[in-house]
Design a protein around this nucleic acid. Structure first.
Lengths: 338, 338
DNA sequence: AGAGCCTTTGCATCCGTATGCAATCACGCT
DNA sequence: AGCGTGATTGCATACGGATGCAAAGGCTCT
C-alpha cells in the first residue's frame, strides 16, 4: 500500500510508440507530427495530434534532447539576485524564453566571480545556450564554451577584451553623459561619481561617459569613491565619505544611490536635492517610492530581453553573423532627487 | 569555414563508451564509477575517475535522466518575483539544491493564478519534484501530479483543503499573535490589519493569529482593509484609508508595510511610531533601511530552505512518511516603526 | 583438492525520440 | 499500358547511460 504522497516508481507516461500502436501507424509518424516542417501528410498530422490530445501524450523532452542533441534549455547565470534590478530581469527573461519554447535553468555564482565555475555543470546538462547577467566569463571560459559550438550572451555586461561574446546592454556611456549633463544643467559645481564593483563594465562605462562629458565641457574630473560592490550598504558608506564635499553625485546604480540618499539625509543631515543632487542608474521600483523619488537612468529591460531572446534564437538557428555588442539607449527619469 | 561564434553542429563530447574503450574496460564500469554505491572495485573506480578527469569526461545528465527515468531537476514555480522576499528565497533555494546535486528549472506564473498551468510543461521536462512558492496548486492539480508519483512542496504556503501536499512555511499564526502582542504592549488602542491577497494562506493565517490574540485579551477585533495583493502600491492605498483611524497597523507583509509607511508619513503627515505604529512580516532588506526601520516578523528563510531540500530528498529517496505541514517560528525584529 | 560464497566484471537490453534511407503509393504523362 | 516523379510512410538505428543477469575470479572452509 502506497500512500499517494510516496514516490511510487516511474510514473506511467504515454509514449510515442504507444500512441502510434493505437493509431496503427509507426512511431516515426508521431514524432513527425510534432516536428514542424517534417515530411508528413496534413491529415495524418491532424489525426496524430488529436489522438495525442485525447491520450495526453506529450513528447518527452529529455529523450528528444538526447536524440536531437539539443536540449531547448537555456542556462541563466546570475550573481546579484539581491539587487532588485535583477529579479525583474529574471522574470521577464524566463517568460520570454518560455514563450519562445525554451526553458530556463537557473544558476547562481557569488558576485564578482566569473561564471566559469558553472561551465562544467552547463555542459553536463547540455544546455544550448547561456545568458550571463551580473557576471562575466573569462576569455578562456568563453573560448571553451563557444569552441564547443554553443551560444552565450552577456546581459547587462560587455565582454572584456577580445572575447567573441555577444552582449546586450544599455548604452552606459551615453547614460553616464546624460547624468553629467543633467547635474550640470542644474548648476551643480562639484560632481562626484560612486563606482560599484570596479571590474564591471557597467560601472566602468557609466563612469567613462560621466567623465567624458565633464572633460568636453572643460570641467575638472569628478570626485570619485569606490563603493566596492553594488549594494545599499556600500552606497551608504560611499555617500557618507562624500557628504559636504560634493553637490551632485552620480551613483553607478540605483541600489547604491538609495543607500547614498539615506546616508546623505539621515546621517549627514543634508537636504536632497537642495544641498546635493543624486542620480542613479537602472530604475528599480524602490527608486520611485515617495521616500526616495530617485532621479535615474532607466534601462530598457523589455527591449533588452527581447533582443536577447531574438539573438539567442538566431544563434541556435545557425543564422547569425559575427558577435554583436548591442547598446540600447537609457532614458533619464526625472524625479525628486536631482 | 565556421566563425567560432557560429553554432557548429553537435560539439564533440567524450562519452562513457569512449572512455571505457580507452581504458580497456566495459562502459558499465564507467557508469558504475560514477554511481555511488554501485558494485565496483575501489581501484577500478579510481582508475576510471582519473581517466575521466584527464579526458574531461562528465556523465551526460540528459542520457542518465532518460535511462534512470529521473532527471535530478527540480522545478521552482514562482509568482511574485517582484516582492523582494522571493529573490532571496530563490537564491538560497537554487544554491541549496545545487549543493544537493539538483538543478533548478524556473517557471513563473501570474500572481494569484494556481501553478496548475505549469504542470504539463513540468511533466514534459520530467522534473522530479516541484517547489511552489508564492502560488498554490488546485486539489485536482495536486492529485494529478502526486498520482504520477512525483513530489511537490509548497513553500511559504499551506495547502488549502485536504490536498496531501507537503508544505513548509513559517508559523504565521504565532507571528500574527506576536504582532498583536507587540502593538498592545506599547499601549496601542485601535489596531488594524491590512490583508494582502485574500486567498493566500499567508495573509489568512497572519490575520487569524492577530485576531485571536485580540480576542483572548477580550479586545474588539481590529479594523480591516483588504489591499488586494502584495505590493507597495496596495499597501500605500490601504494605509491612506486607515490614516487617523488606527494607531497600530499590522500589514500582511513587508512590502505592503513599506508602502503603508510612506503613505502614513508623506501623504497623511503622521509620525511613525509616535502617531501610529507599523509592523510588517518577512523581513526584507529594505525594511532595515534607515528610511523605514520597519519592525517586522522575520521568516527563517535559511531554515525553511534547508527543510525544503531535506524533505525533497526524502521524498525522492522514497523514505518519507505522510505529507507534513511544517511551521517554523518567526522572530520579532524590533526596529523603529513600532 | 573440492565445494561454496562473495566480489567484480562484462553483456545485452532498455529508456523515448529523431532521422537517413528505402519502400510504397498515387498520379500524370507519353 | 508503362514509366517517371513527388509525396508519404515505415524500418532500423543512433543518442549516452543505467542496470539485471550471468560469467569469471578469488577466497575460505572442510
Amino acid at each position: 500500500m502506497d500512500t499517494p504522497s510516496r514516490l511510487a516508481g516511474p510514473p506511467a507516461v504515454v509514449t510515442a510508440r504507444a500512441l502510434a500502436r493505437r493509431l496503427g501507424v509507426s512511431q516515426s509518424m508521431v514524432s513527425r507530427a510534432f516536428s514542424p516542417g517534417a515530411s508528413i501528410a496534413p491529415e495524418m498530422r491532424a489525426r496524430v495530434l488529436r489522438a495525442a490530445e485525447e491520450l495526453g501524450y506529450r513528447p518527452n523532452v529529455i529523450a528528444a534532447a538526447l536524440s536531437r542533441r539539443r536540449s531547448s534549455i537555456v542556462a541563466i547565470v546570475m550573481a546579484e539576485l539581491t539587487n532588485p534590478f535583477y529579479p525583474a530581469v529574471l522574470e521577464r527573461l524566463t517568460a520570454a524564453l518560455q514563450a519562445a519554447g525554451l526553458q530556463s535553468l537557473l544558476f547562481t555564482v557569488p558576485p564578482g566571480q566569473p561564471a566559469d565555475s558553472c561551465l562544467p555543470l552547463l555542459r553536463q546538462y547540455h544546455v544550448d545556450a547561456v545568458v550571463i547577467t551580473s557576471a562575466s566569463l573569462t576569455s578562456a571560459g568563453a573560448a571553451e564554451w563557444l569552441g564547443d559550438g554553443r551560444a552565450a550572451v552577456l546581459f547587462n555586461r560587455t565582454a572584456a577584451g577580445p572575447t567573441p561574446l555577444d552582449s546586450i546592454a544599455c548604452d552606459n556611456l551615453a547614460g553616464g553623459r546624460a547624468a553629467a549633463e543633467a547635474l550640470l544643467a542644474q548648476g551643480r559645481k562639484q560632481l562626484a561619481f560612486v563606482a560599484g564593483r570596479a571590474d564591471t563594465s557597467t560601472s566602468q562605462d557609466r563612469e567613462r561617459g560621466f567623465r567624458a562629458m565633464l572633460a568636453e565641457r572643460g570641467l575638472p574630473p569628478p570626485l570619485r569613491v569606490e563603493a566596492g560592490d553594488f549594494s545599499y550598504e556600500s552606497g551608504h558608506r560611499a555617500a557618507r565619505s562624500l557628504a559636504g564635499r560634493a553637490d551632485g553625485i552620480f551613483f553607478a546604480n540605483d541600489i547604491l544611490a538609495l543607500g547614498g540618499l539615506d546616508a546623505l539625509r539621515h546621517d549627514a543631515g543634508l537636504r536632497v536635492p537642495e544641498d546635493v543632487a543624486v542620480i542613479g542608474f537602472d530604475d528599480i521600483p524602490m527608486g520611485a517610492w515617495p521616500a526616495y523619488r530617485l532621479t535615474t537612468l532607466r534601462q530598457p529591460v523589455p527591449a533588452m530581453v527581447a533582443r536577447t531572446v531574438e539573438l539567442l534564437q538566431a544563434r541556435l538557428g545557425g543564422t547569425a553573423g559575427p558577435p554583436t555588442g548591442e547598446r540600447l539607449p537609457a532614458e533619464l527619469v526625472r524625479r525628486g532627487s536631482a
